[in-house]
Amino acid sequence: MLAAPPWEDPDLFAQQIVSGIASGSLFAILALAIVMIYRSTDVLNFGQGEMALFAAFMSWTFLTRMDFWPAFFLAILVAAVMGAALERFVLRPVSEAPVLNSIVVTLGLFVVFNGLSLWIWGSQPKGYGPFSVFKGDATCVSDVCIGRLNIGILVVTLIIMVLLYLLFQHTRLGLALRATAQNRTASRLVGIPVGNMLSIGWGLAAAVGAVAGVMATQNLSLTTGTMFAVLLFAFAAAVLGGLDSPVGAVVGGLSIGVIKNLAGTYVPPEVGSVDLLVAFLVIVLVLMVRPTGLFGRRAVRRV
């Protein structure tokens, strides 16, 4: 059955926009993590989604010992330490090597983290169920509703963005991180410990990714296959916004969320499910028309 067009059922349309923004903010956070790493180390981290998944599983395990929020923060902390260690011991040795090598290494991370999750936690879906703090009635304005979980996701996303903004724009560490991302030689010459900055950058990105992982698996289910699609949407978001633009990642993420929801509602069901296809088309279209994305600056072409 075809959904009523927006002019006949504006509430349905508004509802899809609201839900789209909520799920889009998940893509935005993961895309943010990808962009942070790409900016600072020129590495495209295909392992980001699976690292996030691993963190989500960890938080689920911690739940047997503690409440939600302590488990949440502990998982993020562990993820950050792991991210920093990965940069130091796995990525840095290939930092002078071709792009291909670093991509191959992050694909290795993808496989390893996915495999580890499967081995440790099995293939049975896990749920936060009773532990989740995002329970309760949806909030409605006329017929447009937003659930507790979606409110939670939006608030967490907002908090992350504000924190990152403050860190990068208003602290000495943030300034050093931005400097390192731009010009490593110059950073060394002014006395910035570049290696530490790269590790911190990866740790930070892993932590941000972990938040995306925990929130995403609250929404979807917690299985080893959950993050494949989320990673695809995050890549679509990053490409749409520009691979080197944090603002772009956020705008791209929200847009992809909304586009995906609208397509899910208004594409006739006879066609089949098209959510992944939408992300694929966005990626292909952007790369054909404007490979730097909406906010990106760096040249995409190989020179």
Partner: peptide
């Protein structure tokens, strides 16, 4: 080798 994407002030602070 200045940091072209940062401001003059930020360059000096670095």
């Amino acid at each position: 080798q200045i940091f072209t994407e940062l401001t003059v002030m930020e360059n000096l602070r670095l």
